[in-house]
Simulated scan of single mutants.
Amino acid sequence: MKILVTGTAGFIGSHVAMRLLARGDEVIGLDNLNDYYDVTLKQARLERFRHDPRYVHVHADLADRDAIADVFARHRPQRVVHLAAQAGVRYAAENPHVYVSSNVTGFLHVIEGCRTHAVEHLVFASTSSVYGANRAMPFSEHQSAEHPLTLYAATKKANEQMAHSYAHLYGTPSTGLRFFTVYGPWGRPDMALFLFTRAILQGEPIKVFNHGRHRRSFTYIDDIVEGVIRCLDRPPTIDSTWDGKAPDPSSSGVAPFRLFNIGNERPVELLAYIRRLEQCLGREAIMDMLPLQPGDVPDTEADVSELRHAVGYAPQVGVEEGVERFVRWYRDYHGV
């Protein structure tokens, strides 16, 4: 297939592009290489596959309506994996306009391209952050997600609703994936594992929020990619089981639309995560214990039973192995 992957210089996007190329697909990669974090890292990710003859790279901004329209008109992708967005939950408090421009306006431009060119399936990134103030564990797609606690989460919730409306009005099959905490080689420098590793190796303290007591569904990147591609290969249809009385947030009786959690069902306490990192690095962390950050949630736990039932999703890599793989990559990439 010919597949458009947005955010191919990003953490998840680069891994997805490589997997698609490895199985023989053509990939149109789109990224604006913004400077939210180290552009050198983004370029290094791209170098792993940008010379593949089945890969075409487009340097463009999601907010540029004409540029995105041109990508669809010129390359006519059959399916789309939309992973590009302004990342970082906390950065949104300082730069709200950037988030709306990229995550809402940019999403509109992508889904308009899908509508105009009859794309077979749009798979897009949402987030577990949409569960916000929800305290029922584990988080399930069947629960309400109407009270996000951050602007970032609100933009992703808007994406879900926009995708459903397009699926209903125009028949554009769409699948939203609510990512839980993703980690692994080539990860983002602003995420905990990267920050902790750098600080520990430099003998600097690490900030441990909520005194390390919160739990997260840490999910290794290879498991995420496997789930994304399995979903891409199975466009949704209208859910005929809907009775019209109590709409299920995870599906729709009037549109080819689905929402799935994608994560690891075995949450790990942050302190245990740090302890495993210390073992792999052979050094102890200096921990600055701090209270929970505003807008953060104490715990996340993914119920992935729907994704398992739909596509056979089954995460294979636990934290013990995943953190070790990240440390090996970090040492090699940075020469430390």
Rank of each mutant, 00 (worst) to 15 (best):
L307G: 06
A310S: 11
T40A: 14
G10I: 03
V225L: 06
L177I: 08
V336Q: 13
Y131R: 02
H109N: 15
H57N: 14
I111W: 02
P205Q: 06
V304C: 15
V323Y: 04
G24A: 02
A272F: 03
S174F: 00
D239S: 09
A255D: 08
P53T: 06
V254N: 15
L20P: 01
C280P: 04
V39F: 09
L232M: 01
T172S: 10
A192W: 01
R234N: 12
T172D: 09
T40Q: 13
L21N: 09
I262K: 06
R258N: 10
I262L: 14
E321S: 10
L108W: 11
N103F: 02
V5W: 04
K156W: 03
Y91G: 06
G282N: 07
S126A: 07
L232P: 00
Q279H: 12
S101D: 14
G106T: 04
R76Y: 04
V228I: 15
V16L: 09
F257L: 03
L277W: 01
E141N: 06
Q161V: 11
R48W: 05
R90V: 13
E112F: 02
A118S: 13
T241V: 07
F49L: 03
R90C: 10
E146G: 14
S305I: 05
T8G: 10
Q78A: 14
E26R: 12
P138L: 08
T8A: 05
G113T: 05
D233K: 03
L277P: 00
G10W: 03
